[in-house]
Every structure is written in structure tokens, then in C-alpha cells.
Amino acid sequence: MAETTAAGPLVKVRDLKMYFPIHAGLFKSHVGDIKAVDGISFDIAPGETLGLVGESGCGKSTVGRSILRLYDVTDGTVEINGSEIAHVDRDSLRSKRPMMQMIFQDPQASLNPRMTVASIIAEPLDEHLELSSKERLARIYELMDWVGLNREFAKRYPHEFSGGQRQRIGIARALALNPKFIVCDEPIAALDVSIQAQVVNLLEELQDRLDLTYLFISHDLSMVRHIADRVAVMYLGRIVEVASRDALFAEPLHPYTQALLSAVPEPDPASERNRTPIVLQGDVPSPANPPTGCNFSTRCPKAMEICRQMEPGVFEFGGGRQVACHLYSDDMAEPAEPTAGSESN
């Protein structure tokens, strides 16, 4: 297992595909595929947070789950901390599990209601380590301290906690084995606005303290702008644009990103009066039957003839910015290998 060099990415995903087969008819024959993730590449540097945004059903969760090998991926490679993950056998996968973890959207559903907080947090410890009961308890308390849960709650059950506290339990469990990389799948979506900020601040503090790398999946663009260093925008199974946070929010280049950002309302009545969102028309295509050409061509306000015929290439704009759109094909932008731009290359 070669360690990555300090400068290299911690997470390296190339041409990842995750298709879910569609079976139909009496004999359940394979009639097609839902192309939930259809050829995605990106890097995440150590200590970095990559935000992943896009509309419901575009494949964000599937990306997160595939790179942690919660699914058997259809194609492509995933390398985390120098280890190949996508095609490795079950046994060696088990030894890699501790370094990569996931925090889920619904804290309620992801915690076993019959287990105490202590046993929920200790579950991964019991599975992967052999700790004495004293070491085990010390570790549970340490984790509870980290996430701001009172140690006195160790013997309580999940239903006795609020949503924000339950999310803290999930975070403590994810941290139990000192992971390097955490996929946060909509970690605040189920929480009240006033509690969301608490959890986001906690994730940021833990990242600094423990040198964590995050893939932060969210449909809340303002929260992504707050937490992410770089942002990848997905549409129907593909990444359409990736850029540093500041560049993306200052000047989105892909027409879908433009529509997405223009649609976010702002808590300021004066500026809301002047905001004109780009309202998308046309049908949202299904990942079982994506359109020919560019996936966004059915709704794109700037679609040209070529967009309905040919899939766009990926163009490099410097500073790690990449955009997959025909509008830029005869621009100054250079065609690029889609690595979703680590700034170091």
C-alpha cells in the first residue's frame, strides 16, 4: 500500500460509473439501466472540503456511496489515501474501512433506536479494534467531548435527543476510527435552521483539529458556499462544472450552474426585488433515458444545435476550473483530462 506523496490528492476518482439495472417482465429480465453516475472524475486534496451540489436525483448520494464502496461500482477507479477502493476484494476492503466514513442525512433513521449512545459510538470500535473496556470507555468519552455531547448522556437512547444532538451522535460514530476522509451526505438537511449552523461549525472545528478531508453533499448552496473550498456541480449523473468556491459563486460558467445560483433566494427584500432568476423550461430527463448530446440540453436556455447531438468535452479554465459545455469549445479554454481540477496540476 503506497502512501501518497504529501502534495497528491487524498481522494482520486476517475471515470466512475454506477448503473442500477432495471428489471421488468415476468422473468425479471434486464431491460436497461438507471445511469445514476455516468463517468465522473475528481480529486480532493488532503484537508480540503469538496462541495457536491445538484438537483434531487442527479446522483450525489450515489457518488458518495460508490466511492466508499457501499455499492459495487459499474466502472472506473477510486483511490483513497493511495489505496485502490473500487475493485478491491471484500477482505482488503474491510481493512480500509476505518479511514473512510459517512455521515448521513437523517440522524433519526441512521441510529439504532435500541442501542444506547455509548454502544452506537462504540460499534465501529468493537468491530475493528480490540480495546479493553477501560480504553473503550475512555475513547467513547473522548469522542463525546469532541462533538459536544455531555458524557452523562452515554447511557441514553437516540429518541431522547433532539435532531441536532442525534446528528452529533452520528458524527462521533463516524470519527471513532480516526478516519481521514468523510462523506457528509446532506448532514444538515433534516435539521432546523437554528441548529444547522451549530452542526456546520462543529464539522469545521473537527476538520481543523483532526485534519479531515470532506466530500460535502448538499442542495443548500449557501451552506456549501460557507463550508466548501471547491465545488462540483452535478447534473443527471455527470459533473458539469467544478471550480474553487469563490470563482464558482462569483462567476458561474455552465448554464446549469448559472440557473442554479440565480434561483437561490436571498434573505434581503431589497435585493430580492431586483433579482430575476433564470427560470428553466422543459422536461427534467430521467437517468434511465438520458437525452442524446448534452444531458442539460432539454432545459438549457443557451442550447445550440450541437448540444442535442454531441456530448460536450471538458474545458480547462485555469486555477483548477473545469466546465463541460459546448459554449466554450472555441474559446480560449483548453480541452482537459477531466480530473475535476486539483489546483496543483
Binding site: 458556499r225 460557507h226 445560483l261
Partner: peptide, 16 residues
């Protein structure tokens, strides 16, 4: 507590 998508970006979120 709500972060903005436009304008200045705060380093840390205010919490209740």
C-alpha cells in the same frame, strides 16, 4: 444564522 450566496462570506456561522 443563515449564510449568504451573494456578497461577503462570513468566516464563522453565528449560532443560536
Amino acid at each position: 444564522t443563515v449564510p449568504a450566496v451573494r456578497g461577503a462570506r462570513a468566516e464563522k456561522l453565528q449560532v443560536i
